[in-house]
Design a protein around this nucleic acid. Structure first.
Lengths: 194, 194
DNA sequence: TTTACACTAACGAACGTTCGATAGGTATCC
DNA sequence: GGATACCTATCGAACGTTCGTTAGTGTAAA
């Protein structure tokens, strides 16, 4: 049994490949990114990739596993110890945005509309939803005015953040401001003190 | 023989091709969508496409021209006559979302990260910015608390809306609610009465 | 001597694009 | 009104290139 994604002995080249693949998937999209380009990016022969990954699909999945694992870990760590409420949500948004805009292309590569034909589509959607559950919980924990649509609030928040890499060109300092803007714009409206 | 020298022989097949291309670009992304698929979608031979469009790039551009023209026209019409302020912004957001989520794939096809290699990239970016100028004006016209970052507010708004097609699966009735949620969440926070 | 990792070489399929040909329409001139 | 010429829209076939993938081989380390 030679199932892929088997950790075995973590080789550096595997991580290199994931990073290179992320660069190409981000730059060209899944369909237009070629195995040959990815191989060239790490100075490897095309066929050698197939020692590490069973297919282009599997490599695409691995990029998402790596990226989503990292952003999930980072966001979870950032809210640890903060009591439920707006401060906790604010911390999560700041962490999410800093990861997304921090410069590592892997996060831009995974925050895109998924290609239709790809076999691993459902798995990736599942992983994404698992991450978004963090924000679902955060919003559920807020004390909000009666009648507030929490689902819309959560999706609005995620949309505002995830769309940002299509326009964001600034330096790091702006990221914190952006997160603050996004959350406080909502917070002032919806906060229930008492 | 009305106004001659106007070769606007609006052939139906050209519009058909744009619609079919939008379907394929939306489903597969620019790189993975093939000229053959698009041709098959309208029951045409592959080569026949090149009578109407000089290249795949040109077809991609035409899809964006058509889609952006239509969403721009619709949004502009929706805010006509409404005085500057939150009501006007609300109307624009409702129109934008109803167009985006109304079911025509062309709008999903043009609201995506642009592929890198494509030659018409700059032209498309220019057209997009021309449309976003509408929202820039709307936000500039708002009476906001001092210190509010209007740029962040606009990008937050556009992000919340443009990301929605990645998750939206509902029927039309929810669209209006969503637009209302998005705008009022901000409006309550930022409205300056007086 | 086995294992891990990389290589060379090649496969068939699909890609964007170009070509010459053709059937029907329309306007022009004799 | 028949001949001539051009335009429109499509076709089938083919171009050279690139695609994802496979097979088989070499080699340094354990």
């Amino acid at each position: 049994m030679t199932t892929d994604t088997a950790p075995k002995h973590a080789s550096n080249r595997r991580d290199e490949l994931i990073a290179a693949a992320a660069t190409c998937f981000d730059r060209d999209g899944y369909g237009a990114a070629s195995i040959r380009d990815i191989a060239a990016e790490v100075g490897m022969q095309t066929a050698s990739i197939y020692y590490h990954f069973a297919s282009k699909d599997a490599l695409f999945l691995a990029v998402h596993e790596e990226g989503l694992h990292r952003i999930m870990t980072g966001t979870s760590a950032a809210i640890e110890g903060i009591p439920p409420g707006w401060d906790r949500l604010q911390a999560a948004c700041t962490a999410h945005l800093e990861t997304l805009l921090g410069g590592d292309v892997i996060f831009k590569a995974i925050m895109r509309p998924l290609p239709a034909g790809v076999e691993v589509r459902e798995k990736i959607i599942e992983m994404r939803e698992s991450y978004e559950q963090v924000f679902r919980d955060l919003v559920d924990d807020l004390d909000l005015p009666a009648g507030t649509n929490r689902r819309h609030l959560r999706l609005m928040l995620l949309g505002a953040m995830n769309w940002s890499f299509t326009w964001f060109r600034g330096r790091r300092p702006e990221i914190g401001d952006l997160a603050t803007s996004i959350v406080t714009n909502l917070r002032v409206a919806l906060e229930v003190d008492g």
